[in-house]
Nucleic acid binder design. Structure first.
Lengths: 250, 250
DNA sequence: ATAAAAGTGTGTTTTTTTTACACTAAGTAC
DNA sequence: GTACTTAGTGTAAAAAAAACACACTTTTAT
Protein backbone atom coordinates (compact mmCIF):
# COMPACT_ATOMS: atom_id res chain seq x y z
CA UNK A 1 0.00 0.00 0.00
CA UNK A 2 1.56 3.22 -1.10
CA UNK A 3 0.45 5.03 2.00
CA UNK A 4 2.66 2.74 4.03
CA UNK A 5 5.85 4.06 2.53
CA UNK A 6 8.01 5.03 5.48
CA UNK A 7 7.37 8.44 6.93
CA UNK A 8 10.91 9.42 6.10
CA UNK A 9 10.40 8.76 2.41
CA UNK A 10 7.19 10.73 2.45
CA UNK A 11 8.88 13.58 4.22
CA UNK A 12 11.44 13.70 1.49
CA UNK A 13 9.07 13.33 -1.42
CA UNK A 14 6.12 15.44 -0.38
CA UNK A 15 5.26 19.08 -0.15
CA UNK A 16 4.70 19.00 3.60
CA UNK A 17 2.36 21.97 3.75
CA UNK A 18 -0.23 20.66 1.31
CA UNK A 19 -2.42 17.60 1.57
CA UNK A 20 -5.48 16.30 -0.19
CA UNK A 21 -8.54 14.72 1.43
CA UNK A 22 -11.03 12.83 -0.68
CA UNK A 23 -14.70 12.43 0.07
CA UNK A 24 -15.60 9.50 -2.14
CA UNK A 25 -19.34 9.09 -2.57
CA UNK A 26 -20.69 5.78 -3.75
CA UNK A 27 -24.18 4.88 -4.82
CA UNK A 28 -25.67 1.44 -4.61
CA UNK A 29 -28.94 -0.28 -3.77
CA UNK A 30 -30.74 2.98 -3.15
CA UNK A 31 -28.22 4.19 -0.66
CA UNK A 32 -25.66 6.95 -0.68
CA UNK A 33 -22.41 5.87 0.88
CA UNK A 34 -19.13 7.49 1.57
CA UNK A 35 -15.75 5.88 2.01
CA UNK A 36 -14.05 6.34 5.35
CA UNK A 37 -10.90 4.93 6.91
CA UNK A 38 -10.44 3.77 10.44
CA UNK A 39 -7.79 5.41 12.53
CA UNK A 40 -6.64 4.41 16.00
CA UNK A 41 -5.39 7.28 18.06
CA UNK A 42 -3.46 6.61 21.25
CA UNK A 43 -3.91 9.48 23.65
CA UNK A 44 -2.75 9.42 27.23
CA UNK A 45 -3.55 5.86 28.40
CA UNK A 46 -6.42 5.18 26.03
CA UNK A 47 -6.71 4.33 22.35
CA UNK A 48 -9.38 6.20 20.43
CA UNK A 49 -11.01 4.75 17.34
CA UNK A 50 -12.20 7.29 14.83
CA UNK A 51 -12.86 7.71 11.14
CA UNK A 52 -11.45 10.01 8.56
CA UNK A 53 -11.52 10.51 4.82
CA UNK A 54 -8.59 9.12 2.89
CA UNK A 55 -5.96 11.75 2.42
CA UNK A 56 -2.33 12.15 1.63
CA UNK A 57 0.39 14.68 1.24
CA UNK A 58 1.00 16.13 -2.18
CA UNK A 59 4.21 14.73 -3.57
CA UNK A 60 6.80 17.02 -5.02
CA UNK A 61 6.35 15.64 -8.52
CA UNK A 62 2.53 15.83 -8.43
CA UNK A 63 -0.09 18.45 -8.98
CA UNK A 64 -2.99 18.16 -6.60
CA UNK A 65 -5.24 16.46 -9.14
CA UNK A 66 -2.64 13.74 -9.44
CA UNK A 67 -2.61 13.39 -5.67
CA UNK A 68 -6.38 13.01 -5.69
CA UNK A 69 -6.22 10.44 -8.51
CA UNK A 70 -3.58 8.52 -6.61
CA UNK A 71 -5.70 8.43 -3.46
CA UNK A 72 -8.79 7.38 -5.41
CA UNK A 73 -6.88 4.60 -7.11
CA UNK A 74 -5.53 3.34 -3.79
CA UNK A 75 -8.92 3.36 -2.14
CA UNK A 76 -11.22 2.09 -4.85
CA UNK A 77 -8.98 0.47 -7.42
CA UNK A 78 -10.61 2.73 -10.02
CA UNK A 79 -8.88 5.10 -12.39
CA UNK A 80 -10.24 8.02 -14.34
CA UNK A 81 -13.23 8.47 -12.08
CA UNK A 82 -14.92 11.76 -11.60
CA UNK A 83 -13.29 13.92 -8.91
CA UNK A 84 -13.52 17.59 -8.27
CA UNK A 85 -11.76 19.98 -5.98
CA UNK A 86 -14.41 21.71 -3.91
CA UNK A 87 -12.76 23.65 -1.11
CA UNK A 88 -9.47 24.39 0.54
CA UNK A 89 -9.33 23.98 4.28
CA UNK A 90 -6.65 25.79 6.17
CA UNK A 91 -5.56 25.76 9.77
CA UNK A 92 -8.02 28.35 10.99
CA UNK A 93 -10.88 26.12 9.86
CA UNK A 94 -9.13 23.10 11.26
CA UNK A 95 -9.39 24.58 14.75
CA UNK A 96 -13.15 24.99 14.56
CA UNK A 97 -13.73 21.40 15.55
CA UNK A 98 -15.89 19.86 18.20
CA UNK A 99 -14.62 21.02 21.53
CA UNK A 100 -14.34 17.60 23.14
CA UNK A 101 -11.88 16.51 20.47
CA UNK A 102 -9.71 19.46 20.90
CA UNK A 103 -7.41 18.27 23.63
CA UNK A 104 -6.10 15.14 22.04
CA UNK A 105 -6.27 16.43 18.52
CA UNK A 106 -4.22 19.44 19.42
CA UNK A 107 -0.84 17.74 19.24
CA UNK A 108 -1.60 16.74 15.65
CA UNK A 109 -1.92 20.36 14.70
CA UNK A 110 1.79 20.63 15.28
CA UNK A 111 2.56 18.50 12.27
CA UNK A 112 3.55 20.25 9.13
CA UNK A 113 0.20 20.10 7.37
CA UNK A 114 -0.99 23.61 6.81
CA UNK A 115 -3.69 23.39 4.24
CA UNK A 116 -5.68 20.53 2.83
CA UNK A 117 -7.53 20.52 -0.44
CA UNK A 118 -10.89 18.79 -0.37
CA UNK A 119 -11.92 16.68 -3.35
CA UNK A 120 -15.20 14.96 -3.76
CA UNK A 121 -15.66 12.03 -6.03
CA UNK A 122 -18.53 9.91 -7.24
CA UNK A 123 -18.44 6.24 -8.03
CA UNK A 124 -21.04 3.72 -8.98
CA UNK A 125 -20.52 1.03 -6.37
CA UNK A 126 -21.26 -1.68 -8.89
CA UNK A 127 -18.03 -0.62 -10.60
CA UNK A 128 -16.02 -1.16 -7.44
CA UNK A 129 -14.32 -4.48 -6.89
CA UNK A 130 -14.74 -4.85 -3.16
CA UNK A 131 -11.66 -7.02 -2.86
CA UNK A 132 -9.54 -4.01 -3.71
CA UNK A 133 -10.95 -1.98 -0.84
CA UNK A 134 -8.14 -1.64 1.62
CA UNK A 135 -8.35 -3.14 5.04
CA UNK A 136 -9.10 -0.14 7.22
CA UNK A 137 -11.64 1.37 4.85
CA UNK A 138 -15.39 0.96 4.74
CA UNK A 139 -18.33 2.34 2.85
CA UNK A 140 -20.47 4.08 5.44
CA UNK A 141 -24.00 5.30 4.95
CA UNK A 142 -23.59 8.97 4.16
CA UNK A 143 -26.45 10.00 6.41
CA UNK A 144 -25.28 7.98 9.38
CA UNK A 145 -23.85 10.46 11.82
CA UNK A 146 -20.30 9.28 12.25
CA UNK A 147 -17.72 10.75 14.52
CA UNK A 148 -15.02 12.00 12.22
CA UNK A 149 -11.49 13.08 13.05
CA UNK A 150 -10.11 16.54 12.71
CA UNK A 151 -12.29 18.86 10.69
CA UNK A 152 -13.58 15.97 8.60
CA UNK A 153 -17.19 16.58 9.59
CA UNK A 154 -16.91 20.02 8.11
CA UNK A 155 -15.23 18.59 5.03
CA UNK A 156 -18.08 16.13 4.63
CA UNK A 157 -20.70 18.86 4.96
CA UNK A 158 -19.02 20.99 2.34
CA UNK A 159 -18.51 18.03 0.03
CA UNK A 160 -22.18 17.06 0.17
CA UNK A 161 -23.21 20.66 -0.30
CA UNK A 162 -21.01 20.98 -3.36
CA UNK A 163 -22.08 17.61 -4.73
CA UNK A 164 -25.70 18.67 -4.53
CA UNK A 165 -25.01 22.09 -6.00
CA UNK A 166 -23.14 20.61 -8.92
CA UNK A 167 -25.85 18.04 -9.54
CA UNK A 168 -28.30 20.90 -10.02
CA UNK A 169 -26.00 22.95 -12.18
CA UNK A 170 -23.92 20.55 -14.21
CA UNK A 171 -24.59 17.31 -16.05
CA UNK A 172 -23.03 15.40 -13.24
CA UNK A 173 -25.61 12.63 -12.88
CA UNK A 174 -24.24 11.05 -15.98
CA UNK A 175 -20.86 10.55 -14.36
CA UNK A 176 -22.49 8.28 -11.86
CA UNK A 177 -25.10 6.57 -13.99
CA UNK A 178 -24.05 3.81 -16.36
CA UNK A 179 -23.81 4.66 -20.05
CA UNK A 180 -27.36 3.39 -20.58
CA UNK A 181 -29.79 3.96 -17.77
CA UNK A 182 -33.48 4.02 -16.97
CA UNK A 183 -35.37 7.10 -15.82
CA UNK A 184 -36.08 5.35 -12.54
CA UNK A 185 -32.36 4.86 -11.96
CA UNK A 186 -31.83 8.52 -12.59
CA UNK A 187 -34.66 9.55 -10.30
CA UNK A 188 -33.46 7.23 -7.52
CA UNK A 189 -30.01 8.73 -7.75
CA UNK A 190 -31.35 12.20 -7.14
CA UNK A 191 -33.57 10.95 -4.37
CA UNK A 192 -30.66 9.30 -2.64
CA UNK A 193 -28.34 12.26 -2.95
CA UNK A 194 -30.95 14.82 -1.95
CA UNK A 195 -32.38 12.44 0.63
CA UNK A 196 -35.93 12.92 -0.52
CA UNK A 197 -38.51 11.44 -2.88
CA UNK A 198 -40.09 12.75 -6.06
CA UNK A 199 -43.39 12.04 -7.75
CA UNK A 200 -42.70 9.74 -10.68
CA UNK A 201 -45.02 11.45 -13.13
CA UNK A 202 -43.85 14.95 -12.30
CA UNK A 203 -40.26 13.82 -12.53
CA UNK A 204 -40.78 12.31 -15.93
CA UNK A 205 -42.62 15.31 -17.23
CA UNK A 206 -39.69 17.51 -16.35
CA UNK A 207 -37.08 15.10 -17.59
CA UNK A 208 -38.85 14.64 -20.90
CA UNK A 209 -38.23 18.26 -21.75
CA UNK A 210 -34.50 17.55 -21.87
CA UNK A 211 -33.62 17.05 -25.48
CA UNK A 212 -30.21 15.68 -24.58
CA UNK A 213 -31.71 12.66 -22.85
CA UNK A 214 -31.89 10.19 -25.70
CA UNK A 215 -34.41 7.35 -25.49
CA UNK A 216 -32.77 4.28 -26.94
CA UNK A 217 -34.37 1.41 -28.83
CA UNK A 218 -33.34 -0.79 -25.97
CA UNK A 219 -34.99 -1.95 -22.81
CA UNK A 220 -33.84 -3.42 -19.55
CA UNK A 221 -33.24 -7.17 -19.47
CA UNK A 222 -33.22 -9.64 -16.66
CA UNK A 223 -35.91 -7.99 -14.57
CA UNK A 224 -39.06 -9.81 -13.56
CA UNK A 225 -41.41 -6.97 -14.34
CA UNK A 226 -42.11 -4.65 -17.24
CA UNK A 227 -38.67 -3.67 -18.49
CA UNK A 228 -37.90 0.03 -18.59
CA UNK A 229 -36.64 1.90 -21.60
CA UNK A 230 -32.95 2.76 -21.56
CA UNK A 231 -31.71 6.28 -22.11
CA UNK A 232 -28.36 7.83 -22.83
CA UNK A 233 -26.91 11.30 -22.37
CA UNK A 234 -26.05 13.27 -25.49
CA UNK A 235 -23.36 15.65 -24.30
CA UNK A 236 -23.09 17.42 -27.63
CA UNK A 237 -26.80 18.17 -27.65
CA UNK A 238 -26.54 19.33 -24.05
CA UNK A 239 -23.79 21.81 -24.90
CA UNK A 240 -25.70 23.04 -27.91
CA UNK A 241 -29.03 23.59 -26.20
CA UNK A 242 -27.81 25.08 -22.96
CA UNK A 243 -29.88 28.21 -22.65
CA UNK A 244 -28.32 31.59 -22.44
CA UNK A 245 -30.21 33.63 -19.95
CA UNK A 246 -29.97 37.07 -21.46
CA UNK A 247 -33.54 38.16 -21.81
CA UNK A 248 -34.57 41.75 -22.24
CA UNK A 249 -38.01 41.00 -23.56
CA UNK A 250 -40.62 42.99 -21.68
CA UNK B 1 -13.15 51.43 -54.39
CA UNK B 2 -12.17 47.82 -54.17
CA UNK B 3 -15.45 46.68 -55.64
CA UNK B 4 -14.55 48.45 -58.84
CA UNK B 5 -11.67 46.12 -59.58
CA UNK B 6 -12.31 44.86 -63.09
CA UNK B 7 -14.57 41.89 -63.39
CA UNK B 8 -11.80 39.93 -64.92
CA UNK B 9 -9.59 40.34 -61.88
CA UNK B 10 -12.42 39.33 -59.61
CA UNK B 11 -13.12 36.30 -61.73
CA UNK B 12 -9.56 35.20 -61.30
CA UNK B 13 -9.29 35.91 -57.61
CA UNK B 14 -12.67 34.80 -56.29
CA UNK B 15 -14.41 31.59 -55.50
CA UNK B 16 -17.16 32.14 -58.02
CA UNK B 17 -19.74 29.93 -56.34
CA UNK B 18 -19.72 31.72 -52.98
CA UNK B 19 -20.63 35.27 -52.15
CA UNK B 20 -21.37 37.23 -49.02
CA UNK B 21 -24.18 39.75 -48.54
CA UNK B 22 -24.13 42.08 -45.54
CA UNK B 23 -27.17 43.54 -43.86
CA UNK B 24 -25.63 46.42 -41.96
CA UNK B 25 -27.95 47.82 -39.32
CA UNK B 26 -27.29 51.28 -37.98
CA UNK B 27 -28.95 53.03 -35.08
CA UNK B 28 -29.27 56.76 -34.72
CA UNK B 29 -31.75 59.37 -33.51
CA UNK B 30 -34.27 56.76 -32.45
CA UNK B 31 -34.32 55.14 -35.81
CA UNK B 32 -33.16 51.79 -37.08
CA UNK B 33 -31.49 52.05 -40.43
CA UNK B 34 -29.99 49.64 -42.84
CA UNK B 35 -27.38 50.27 -45.48
CA UNK B 36 -28.40 49.62 -49.07
CA UNK B 37 -26.74 50.22 -52.41
CA UNK B 38 -28.36 51.51 -55.54
CA UNK B 39 -28.24 49.34 -58.60
CA UNK B 40 -29.35 50.25 -62.11
CA UNK B 41 -30.55 47.32 -64.09
CA UNK B 42 -31.05 47.64 -67.82
CA UNK B 43 -33.70 45.25 -69.00
CA UNK B 44 -35.18 45.27 -72.45
CA UNK B 45 -35.55 48.96 -73.33
CA UNK B 46 -35.89 50.28 -69.77
CA UNK B 47 -33.48 50.87 -66.93
CA UNK B 48 -34.66 49.72 -63.53
CA UNK B 49 -33.43 51.31 -60.33
CA UNK B 50 -33.38 49.01 -57.35
CA UNK B 51 -31.60 48.47 -54.07
CA UNK B 52 -29.57 45.64 -52.70
CA UNK B 53 -27.37 44.88 -49.75
CA UNK B 54 -23.65 45.24 -50.28
CA UNK B 55 -22.13 41.94 -51.24
CA UNK B 56 -19.12 40.46 -52.89
CA UNK B 57 -17.60 37.24 -53.99
CA UNK B 58 -15.38 35.42 -51.57
CA UNK B 59 -11.79 35.72 -52.71
CA UNK B 60 -9.61 32.70 -52.96
CA UNK B 61 -7.34 33.83 -50.14
CA UNK B 62 -10.21 34.73 -47.78
CA UNK B 63 -12.46 32.92 -45.43
CA UNK B 64 -16.01 34.18 -45.45
CA UNK B 65 -15.56 36.24 -42.27
CA UNK B 66 -12.75 38.08 -44.01
CA UNK B 67 -15.03 38.75 -46.96
CA UNK B 68 -17.64 40.18 -44.61
CA UNK B 69 -15.03 42.34 -42.87
CA UNK B 70 -13.82 43.61 -46.19
CA UNK B 71 -17.33 44.55 -47.29
CA UNK B 72 -18.04 46.26 -43.98
CA UNK B 73 -14.81 48.23 -44.20
CA UNK B 74 -15.62 49.33 -47.74
CA UNK B 75 -19.13 50.39 -46.88
CA UNK B 76 -18.72 52.05 -43.49
CA UNK B 77 -15.02 52.75 -43.11
CA UNK B 78 -15.17 50.82 -39.84
CA UNK B 79 -13.06 47.87 -38.83
CA UNK B 80 -13.61 45.30 -36.13
CA UNK B 81 -17.32 45.90 -35.93
CA UNK B 82 -19.73 43.25 -34.86
CA UNK B 83 -20.83 40.97 -37.68
CA UNK B 84 -22.40 37.57 -37.63
CA UNK B 85 -23.22 35.00 -40.20
CA UNK B 86 -26.92 34.26 -39.94
CA UNK B 87 -28.01 32.18 -42.87
CA UNK B 88 -26.89 30.69 -46.13
CA UNK B 89 -29.09 31.37 -49.13
CA UNK B 90 -28.84 29.02 -52.04
CA UNK B 91 -30.39 29.01 -55.46
CA UNK B 92 -33.65 27.34 -54.52
CA UNK B 93 -34.36 30.14 -52.07
CA UNK B 94 -33.24 32.68 -54.59
CA UNK B 95 -36.06 31.65 -56.88
CA UNK B 96 -38.72 32.31 -54.23
CA UNK B 97 -38.81 36.01 -55.05
CA UNK B 98 -41.66 38.33 -55.85
CA UNK B 99 -43.33 37.16 -58.99
CA UNK B 100 -43.29 40.47 -60.82
CA UNK B 101 -39.50 40.61 -60.55
CA UNK B 102 -38.98 37.21 -61.87
CA UNK B 103 -38.81 37.92 -65.55
CA UNK B 104 -36.01 40.40 -65.58
CA UNK B 105 -34.14 38.94 -62.67
CA UNK B 106 -34.09 35.55 -64.28
CA UNK B 107 -31.11 36.14 -66.55
CA UNK B 108 -29.01 37.00 -63.51
CA UNK B 109 -29.53 33.55 -62.13
CA UNK B 110 -27.36 32.28 -64.90
CA UNK B 111 -24.27 33.85 -63.40
CA UNK B 112 -21.95 31.66 -61.45
CA UNK B 113 -23.16 32.60 -57.95
CA UNK B 114 -24.56 29.52 -56.35
CA UNK B 115 -24.82 30.31 -52.69
CA UNK B 116 -24.58 33.51 -50.72
CA UNK B 117 -23.83 33.75 -47.03
CA UNK B 118 -25.84 36.38 -45.19
CA UNK B 119 -24.11 38.42 -42.50
CA UNK B 120 -25.77 40.96 -40.33
CA UNK B 121 -23.86 43.71 -38.63
CA UNK B 122 -24.61 46.43 -36.14
CA UNK B 123 -23.07 49.86 -36.01
CA UNK B 124 -23.69 52.92 -33.97
CA UNK B 125 -24.25 55.58 -36.61
CA UNK B 126 -22.45 58.18 -34.55
CA UNK B 127 -19.31 56.10 -35.10
CA UNK B 128 -19.69 56.29 -38.85
CA UNK B 129 -17.92 59.03 -40.75
CA UNK B 130 -20.48 59.79 -43.41
CA UNK B 131 -17.85 61.05 -45.82
CA UNK B 132 -16.57 57.48 -46.13
CA UNK B 133 -19.96 56.17 -47.22
CA UNK B 134 -19.59 55.25 -50.84
CA UNK B 135 -21.51 57.03 -53.52
CA UNK B 136 -24.26 54.58 -54.36
CA UNK B 137 -25.00 53.65 -50.78
CA UNK B 138 -27.55 55.11 -48.38
CA UNK B 139 -28.84 54.45 -44.92
CA UNK B 140 -32.50 53.60 -45.36
CA UNK B 141 -35.08 53.37 -42.63
CA UNK B 142 -35.26 49.68 -41.84
CA UNK B 143 -39.05 49.69 -41.68
CA UNK B 144 -39.56 51.56 -44.93
CA UNK B 145 -40.72 48.97 -47.40
CA UNK B 146 -38.12 49.16 -50.10
CA UNK B 147 -38.08 47.20 -53.29
CA UNK B 148 -35.00 45.07 -53.06
CA UNK B 149 -33.28 43.10 -55.75
CA UNK B 150 -33.02 39.37 -55.98
CA UNK B 151 -33.91 37.62 -52.78
CA UNK B 152 -32.72 40.55 -50.69
CA UNK B 153 -36.13 41.08 -49.09
CA UNK B 154 -35.90 37.58 -47.75
CA UNK B 155 -32.35 38.22 -46.62
CA UNK B 156 -33.49 41.33 -44.80
CA UNK B 157 -36.33 39.50 -43.08
CA UNK B 158 -34.02 36.77 -41.90
CA UNK B 159 -31.39 39.26 -40.78
CA UNK B 160 -33.87 41.23 -38.70
CA UNK B 161 -35.29 38.03 -37.26
CA UNK B 162 -31.82 36.86 -36.26
CA UNK B 163 -30.82 40.27 -34.93
CA UNK B 164 -33.86 40.27 -32.67
CA UNK B 165 -33.31 36.70 -31.60
CA UNK B 166 -29.70 37.36 -30.72
CA UNK B 167 -30.59 40.54 -28.85
CA UNK B 168 -32.79 38.45 -26.59
CA UNK B 169 -30.26 35.69 -26.12
CA UNK B 170 -26.85 37.28 -26.19
CA UNK B 171 -25.31 40.42 -24.74
CA UNK B 172 -25.48 42.03 -28.12
CA UNK B 173 -26.88 45.41 -27.11
CA UNK B 174 -23.51 46.33 -25.78
CA UNK B 175 -21.97 46.00 -29.21
CA UNK B 176 -24.17 48.83 -30.37
CA UNK B 177 -24.28 51.02 -27.29
CA UNK B 178 -21.31 53.23 -26.46
CA UNK B 179 -19.02 52.11 -23.64
CA UNK B 180 -20.97 54.24 -21.17
CA UNK B 181 -24.67 54.53 -21.75
CA UNK B 182 -27.89 55.52 -20.04
CA UNK B 183 -30.77 53.19 -19.37
CA UNK B 184 -32.93 55.29 -21.65
CA UNK B 185 -30.45 54.80 -24.49
CA UNK B 186 -30.59 51.11 -23.90
CA UNK B 187 -34.36 51.07 -23.78
CA UNK B 188 -34.64 53.16 -26.94
CA UNK B 189 -32.35 50.76 -28.73
CA UNK B 190 -34.62 47.85 -27.94
CA UNK B 191 -37.67 49.87 -28.84
CA UNK B 192 -36.20 50.77 -32.20
CA UNK B 193 -35.08 47.26 -33.05
CA UNK B 194 -38.28 45.62 -31.89
CA UNK B 195 -40.33 48.49 -33.27
CA UNK B 196 -42.33 48.91 -30.12
CA UNK B 197 -42.34 50.85 -26.87
CA UNK B 198 -41.83 49.75 -23.31
CA UNK B 199 -43.03 51.17 -20.03
CA UNK B 200 -40.10 52.97 -18.48
CA UNK B 201 -40.69 51.75 -14.94
CA UNK B 202 -41.17 48.13 -15.94
CA UNK B 203 -38.11 48.27 -18.13
CA UNK B 204 -35.98 49.60 -15.34
CA UNK B 205 -37.23 47.11 -12.83
CA UNK B 206 -36.19 44.29 -15.11
CA UNK B 207 -32.89 45.82 -16.06
CA UNK B 208 -32.00 46.51 -12.45
CA UNK B 209 -31.90 42.78 -11.78
CA UNK B 210 -28.91 42.45 -14.10
CA UNK B 211 -25.85 42.42 -11.91
CA UNK B 212 -23.58 42.89 -14.89
CA UNK B 213 -25.02 46.31 -15.64
CA UNK B 214 -22.75 48.54 -13.61
CA UNK B 215 -24.03 51.95 -12.54
CA UNK B 216 -21.14 54.38 -12.78
CA UNK B 217 -20.41 57.42 -10.62
CA UNK B 218 -20.93 59.47 -13.71
CA UNK B 219 -23.86 61.26 -15.24
CA UNK B 220 -24.71 62.64 -18.63
CA UNK B 221 -23.43 66.12 -19.40
CA UNK B 222 -24.62 68.78 -21.79
CA UNK B 223 -28.30 67.94 -21.59
CA UNK B 224 -30.83 70.58 -20.61
CA UNK B 225 -32.73 68.37 -18.26
CA UNK B 226 -31.99 66.10 -15.36
CA UNK B 227 -28.92 64.20 -16.48
CA UNK B 228 -29.16 60.43 -16.51
CA UNK B 229 -26.81 58.08 -14.77
CA UNK B 230 -24.31 56.28 -16.98
CA UNK B 231 -23.92 52.52 -16.94
CA UNK B 232 -21.38 50.09 -18.30
CA UNK B 233 -21.46 46.41 -19.14
CA UNK B 234 -19.36 44.06 -17.05
CA UNK B 235 -18.71 41.15 -19.37
CA UNK B 236 -16.81 39.17 -16.79
CA UNK B 237 -19.71 39.39 -14.37
CA UNK B 238 -22.05 38.44 -17.17
CA UNK B 239 -20.06 35.31 -17.96
CA UNK B 240 -19.84 34.41 -14.32
CA UNK B 241 -23.51 34.80 -13.52
CA UNK B 242 -24.91 33.26 -16.65
CA UNK B 243 -27.21 30.60 -15.37
CA UNK B 244 -26.71 27.05 -16.35
CA UNK B 245 -30.07 25.57 -16.97
CA UNK B 246 -29.50 22.08 -15.76
CA UNK B 247 -32.09 21.82 -13.10
CA UNK B 248 -33.49 18.58 -11.83
CA UNK B 249 -34.88 20.04 -8.67
CA UNK B 250 -38.51 19.15 -8.31
C1' DA C 1 -39.29 80.55 -13.91
C1' DT C 2 -39.65 77.16 -17.40
C1' DA C 3 -38.87 73.22 -20.15
C1' DA C 4 -37.41 68.56 -20.61
C1' DA C 5 -36.20 64.13 -19.50
C1' DA C 6 -34.76 61.27 -15.21
C1' DG C 7 -36.17 58.64 -11.73
C1' DT C 8 -39.25 56.05 -8.66
C1' DG C 9 -43.76 51.91 -6.22
C1' DT C 10 -47.80 49.48 -5.97
C1' DG C 11 -51.79 46.83 -6.96
C1' DT C 12 -53.94 43.77 -10.70
C1' DT C 13 -53.87 40.40 -14.29
C1' DT C 14 -51.82 36.80 -16.79
C1' DT C 15 -48.76 33.11 -17.33
C1' DT C 16 -45.96 29.55 -15.69
C1' DT C 17 -44.71 26.20 -12.44
C1' DT C 18 -45.70 23.03 -8.96
C1' DT C 19 -48.24 19.73 -6.84
C1' DA C 20 -51.44 15.92 -5.93
C1' DC C 21 -53.31 11.88 -7.48
C1' DA C 22 -54.65 6.26 -9.84
C1' DC C 23 -54.92 3.24 -13.26
C1' DT C 24 -53.24 0.14 -17.32
C1' DA C 25 -49.20 -2.28 -19.63
C1' DA C 26 -45.57 -5.55 -19.99
C1' DG C 27 -42.57 -8.68 -18.65
C1' DT C 28 -40.81 -12.79 -15.25
C1' DA C 29 -41.50 -16.53 -12.03
C1' DC C 30 -44.13 -19.91 -10.48
C1' DG D 1 -52.36 -18.64 -16.79
C1' DT D 2 -52.06 -16.29 -12.60
C1' DA D 3 -49.64 -13.51 -9.52
C1' DC D 4 -46.22 -10.18 -8.86
C1' DT D 5 -43.55 -6.14 -9.83
C1' DT D 6 -42.24 -2.01 -11.85
C1' DA D 7 -43.05 0.95 -16.23
C1' DG D 8 -45.59 4.24 -18.12
C1' DT D 9 -49.18 7.83 -18.71
C1' DG D 10 -52.81 12.90 -17.99
C1' DT D 11 -55.38 16.33 -15.74
C1' DA D 12 -57.06 19.66 -12.60
C1' DA D 13 -56.17 22.80 -8.75
C1' DA D 14 -53.01 25.81 -6.22
C1' DA D 15 -49.11 28.61 -5.84
C1' DA D 16 -45.60 31.42 -7.60
C1' DA D 17 -43.64 34.39 -10.88
C1' DA D 18 -43.87 37.61 -14.51
C1' DA D 19 -46.22 41.18 -16.97
C1' DC D 20 -48.73 45.10 -16.99
C1' DA D 21 -50.97 49.67 -16.07
C1' DC D 22 -50.44 53.89 -14.11
C1' DA D 23 -48.56 59.57 -12.22
C1' DC D 24 -45.94 62.32 -9.76
C1' DT D 25 -41.36 64.50 -8.03
C1' DT D 26 -36.43 65.60 -9.11
C1' DT D 27 -32.68 67.72 -11.44
C1' DT D 28 -30.44 70.18 -14.70
C1' DA D 29 -29.81 73.92 -18.68
C1' DT D 30 -31.57 77.95 -20.51
Amino acid sequence: MEENTSNLDIAIETIPTISVDCVIFGYDANELKVLVRRETVPYEDKVYLEWKFPGNHVRKDEDIDATASRILKEQTGLENIFAKQFMVFSDPNRLKRRKQDYEWVKPRLQDDRVITVGFYSLVNLSDVDNSTIIEDAKWANAYENMVLMFDHSEIFDEALKKLRYDLLHEPLVFELLPEKFTLTQMQKLYEVIFNTTYDKRNYRRKVNKMAYLIPLDEIQTGVSHKPARLYSFDREMYEKTRTERFDFRM
